[in-house]
Computed example of a mutant assay.
Amino acid sequence: MKETPAMEWIVRASAAHPEVRFAEGEILIREGEATPSLHVLLDGTVSIYRGAVRVNRTSVPGALFGEMSSLLSIPSSASVVAEGPVRALRIVDGGAFLASDPEIALHAARLLAQRLYDATTYLADLKVQFQDEASHLGMVDRILGSLLNQQVEGAAAPDETRHDPRL
């Protein structure tokens, strides 16, 4: 993910939130833990892990972490670990922050859309690689096909119990 004016903007938009610092090896977000907070990277490099597998690495100011669990009210799906000194802004109520301004929501949506595009491109490539495989690897094609077409009931339904301050 390269730095864009939108990334600089999200840093400015979240500047009122407290700055936190992490040393090399410290965990910003731990996979499986339920937390409503999210982080906005100011500087440093972080790696994102699912289990023991590193799935991403970034040093782009304005990168968001914790937005998926904030939006879906689920435990964190990955761990975010500092690769060296890291400064970030911690937003305690990530869901409220993301809902507070249409531009903030659009920024998060663009980041998530890019991640989804990257993931589905990779999955589609894997699907093609294993589609004709006669061994147990042939199941990769069917599993990935199922994942690429999976829809979660009610995922886009608004939370009608929360008041929208913009109305």
Score class of each variant (00 low, 15 high):
M1R: 14
A6S: 14
A6M: 13
M7V: 06
E8H: 15
E8L: 13
W9P: 01
W9H: 05
I10M: 03
S14T: 03
S14A: 11
A16M: 09
V20N: 01
V20P: 10
R21I: 04
A23K: 11
A23Q: 15
A23P: 07
G25L: 10
E26Q: 11
I29D: 00
R30C: 07
E31Y: 05
G32S: 00
G32W: 11
A34S: 13
A34L: 05
A34Y: 12
D43E: 12
V46Q: 06
Y49H: 12
R50C: 09
G51S: 02
A52E: 14
V53N: 11
V55P: 04
R57T: 15
T58N: 07
S59A: 10
S59L: 01
V60P: 13
P61Q: 07
G62L: 06
G62T: 10
A63T: 08
A63I: 03
L64A: 00
G66P: 01
G66I: 00
M68D: 03
S70W: 05
S70Y: 00
L71N: 03
S73E: 08
S76L: 03
S76G: 10
S76H: 04
S77V: 10
S77C: 07
S79E: 05
V81Q: 06
V81G: 08
A82H: 03
E83T: 11
G84D: 15
P85Y: 10
P85N: 08
V86C: 11
V86A: 02
R90L: 02
I91P: 00
V92E: 10
G94W: 04
G95V: 01
F97D: 01
D101G: 04
I104P: 07
I104C: 05
A105K: 11
A105H: 01
L106M: 11
H107K: 13
H107S: 07
H107E: 02
A108D: 13
L112V: 00
L112G: 05
A113M: 03
L116H: 04
L116F: 14
L116S: 08
Y117N: 10
Y117T: 12
A119I: 09
Y122A: 11
D125G: 15
K127P: 01
Q131T: 10
E133C: 09
E133D: 14
E133A: 15
D141W: 14
I143V: 14
G145K: 05
G145I: 01
S146E: 09
Q150M: 15
V152Y: 09
G154R: 10
P158K: 14
E160F: 15
E160V: 13
T161I: 07
T161K: 09
P165E: 12
R166K: 01
L167T: 14
L167R: 08
L167S: 15
